[in-house]
Amino acid sequence: MQGSTPHLAWHETMELHELVAFQTGQLVAFKKKLPSLQDPELQGLYAEAIRSIESNLRQLLQFYPYAPGMERHAPAGHPELIGAESAQLLGFAKTAVRNYSIAITETATPELRCVFVAHLMQAIEFHAKVFNFMLVRGLYPAYNLDQLLAGDVKNAAQALAL
């Protein structure tokens, strides 16, 4: 980061975390799915997505040393890819909450709005379950930024190595 501030701001660090965590989960899922795809064109699209995400992660990970207070230690290990796989589920849950929230603001039919609201509440409850699963297992140390970012680096490195 030549010519700019010596570190990232807190808010951009959290956006960086969200992007890395989400893309890491998707990368794991896409790499696992690719060998089972039968359609060559769809295989090509998955391969392109994988290359794109790998490139994104490599670029984004270069900013982690500039995160506020980022300690230079490896996080405690977790079996296999549980961190990345649970992060993918958390990303799905967050996206569901966001999508239903947006859909509600665009809905004119009261009956459909009621269904969307019910689905939103279910999505919020599911998000809490996934978050707590990760928090209890040390996979999402929400109250420790150093550990959170170190976990991102570890999970992304595992996904890139697949």
Rank of each mutant, 00 (worst) to 15 (best):
68 P>V: 13
29 A>N: 15
55 S>T: 14
39 D>P: 06
65 P>E: 04
74 A>W: 12
86 S>P: 01
67 A>K: 02
85 E>R: 13
29 A>V: 14
37 L>F: 03
44 G>A: 03
49 A>I: 02
85 E>D: 11
57 L>Q: 04
63 F>C: 02
83 G>Y: 05
88 Q>R: 02
60 L>Y: 13
65 P>D: 04
67 A>T: 09
59 Q>T: 05
89 L>C: 03
57 L>Y: 10
82 I>L: 11
64 Y>H: 07
73 H>Y: 08
38 Q>D: 14
35 P>F: 09
63 F>L: 15
77 G>A: 15
27 L>K: 13
58 R>A: 08
81 L>E: 00
69 G>R: 13
28 V>F: 04
42 L>Q: 13
66 Y>G: 07
43 Q>E: 06
57 L>W: 12
33 K>M: 11
51 R>T: 08
34 L>H: 10
70 M>N: 04
62 Q>E: 15
34 L>E: 11
86 S>Q: 03
81 L>W: 01
50 I>H: 11
35 P>S: 10
77 G>L: 15
73 H>A: 10
53 I>F: 09
29 A>L: 15
44 G>R: 05
77 G>N: 15
73 H>L: 10
70 M>R: 11
64 Y>M: 04
29 A>I: 13
72 R>Y: 04
84 A>V: 02
74 A>F: 12
69 G>Y: 12
59 Q>D: 07
73 H>G: 02
80 E>N: 10
79 P>R: 03
37 L>D: 04
89 L>Q: 07
34 L>A: 13
72 R>C: 04
80 E>W: 08
84 A>L: 01
65 P>S: 08
71 E>I: 02
26 Q>S: 14
61 L>W: 06
31 K>A: 03
64 Y>P: 00
40 P>R: 12
34 L>V: 05
70 M>P: 00
48 E>R: 14
45 L>C: 03
83 G>V: 06
39 D>K: 06
47 A>R: 14
37 L>T: 08
50 I>R: 07
87 A>K: 05
33 K>A: 12
72 R>D: 10
58 R>C: 09
76 A>C: 09
36 S>E: 06
85 E>P: 08
64 Y>N: 03
29 A>Y: 15
75 P>H: 09
69 G>E: 06
32 K>W: 07
46 Y>L: 01
60 L>D: 09
89 L>H: 02
79 P>H: 01
44 G>H: 05
33 K>T: 11
31 K>T: 03
55 S>D: 14
89 L>M: 07
33 K>G: 04
37 L>A: 10
50 I>V: 14
71 E>H: 10
66 Y>T: 07
45 L>T: 01
30 F>G: 01
74 A>G: 07
87 A>T: 06
70 M>T: 01
72 R>L: 08
68 P>A: 15
77 G>D: 15
66 Y>I: 04
